[in-house]
Design a protein around this nucleic acid. Sequence first.
RNA 1: GGUCCGUUCGUCUAGCCAGGUUAGGACGCCAGGUUUUCAUCCUGGUAACAGGGGUUCGAAUCCCCUACGGACUACCA
Length: 501
Amino acid sequence: MIEEKPRVRFAPSPTGPLHVGGVRTALYNYLFARQHGGKMILRIEDTDRTRFVEGAEQYIIDALNWCGIDFDEGVHCGGDYGPYRQSERKVLYVKYIEKLIDSGKAYYAFDTPEELEEMRERGDGNQQYDASIRGKMKNSLTLSQQETDRLLSSKVPYVVRFMMPPERVVKINDVVRGKIEVDSSTLDDKVLLKADGMPTYHLANVVDDHLMKITHVIRGEEWLPSLPLHVLLYEAFGWRLPSFAHLPLLLKPEGKGKLSKRDGDRLGFPVFPTQWKDPQTGEIAMGFREEGYLPQAFVNILLRLGWNPGTDQEIFSMQEMIRTFNLEKVQKGGARFDPEKARWYNHQYIQQMDNETLAKEYLKILHRKGHDAPEEMALRITGMVKERINFPAEIWDQSWFLFEAPRELDPKVMKKKWKQDTPEIIRGLREQLAGAENFQPGALKEVVSDYIHSNGLGFGKVMVPLRICLVGKAAGPDLMEIMEIIGKEETLSRIDRALNP
RNA sequence: GGUCCGUUCGUCUAGCCAGGUUAGGACGCCAGGUUUUCAUCCUGGUAACAGGGGUUCGAAUCCCCUACGGACUACCA
């Protein structure tokens, strides 16, 4: 199907942290490249110096690395088609822009911002810089050759605009959307080279994609409206068109609209892969990593947001993703991010995780809480509560009572489960436990069972109150295990405290 | 306003291209089971073709219109 090895690029602009939508775009590019044995390229689109944010570039690299997405060529790892930072390619674009001017496909424009503003006003704010107006503006089409040369050699700022060809129906076949047709007469003469000598995105992206031999442009839907312009640019240069695939947007969980950076903090879930500290304000935006998401889970969530395998499979290893992903099954409509399902994915991956790794995380938490435990104990507790948790941090929530006595006994549970005869029953059980020689789960179970049976009681009548004494609530893992871990002394002491508040 | 794109359970989606399904799966939710409790887990249930016209024996699937949503409309990407 694909004869040549594909070359794809992820081309973010270093204006801040990468949000989930961008990560997904990078992921789809990556999967596509890896599946076909192609190259994955990281290009930094920093042609707007005013929006440059310190640290953003490194953040992008690190965040994608955390996701398991790596590059073959790019700003951080080199390659044969560099430089990979557009600001460092500045001189290159001028060469190409001159070609366009020489062949009459682009022209110089000297209009001031005020003049442009006035032009838009005149047409009810709808006036575009296009064929209908370019003859009335200050540009190399209306000015004499002499005057143009004079302005160019003076200090007057100018831009270069693309001369949109008239009455052309541009037909493009998008890999995910199929046929798209746009009449060129509805398009305007976009600026290609800015007054500061930097190219606009439109020029830079086309020139670079061509020079870097990009075969497939896989990017967000927000670029769809400028696709016809890009196609016409390729045509103007006489270059071969790459394939285009425009990915649907990631939407807010509630309501409508594109998922924005602000939604995260507002709705209590991250929109960034990893934590980001704004260098200006010092503000910290949370990340999936810091919230306890496993990178594989995070990537899996993104994979299924807008793509489906055509089977019932939900969980994919990176290898499986690479094997099964295809652009044809990418959804056309935008997808809403669902925090609930994200939790479920993480739960699945936590279950797959080995206990040793999880136990190490647990130990870290213990230390933070001012506790410690032998590695073996951490491992044991991890095994006890693993299936109950969605995030590593929840091991603590499920096991704190192994290190600290409950401060209070849940009043709601007390009211429901602590009956008139309960103190007497627990007192009797306490005696049996006090006399127990062996405090291991098996032996304890026997002691408790014997007590229950010889007194004609039910398990629920005894076990739930005992649990309340030890844990403070009616929830948690096996009681016998708990008793062994906290030990005989602590067990009896907690019972006493519950009996004599 | 203009241009372009989109619309199947609450959410992610299968099915559409090659019309005929009890419109399937997953998350969530509800119920039951398992369990000393809670959670996990297992079983079952809930719930959708945006609306209207065509074409056709037959339309979620093909065509048109409307509605709604979104993106773009900068010397930002």
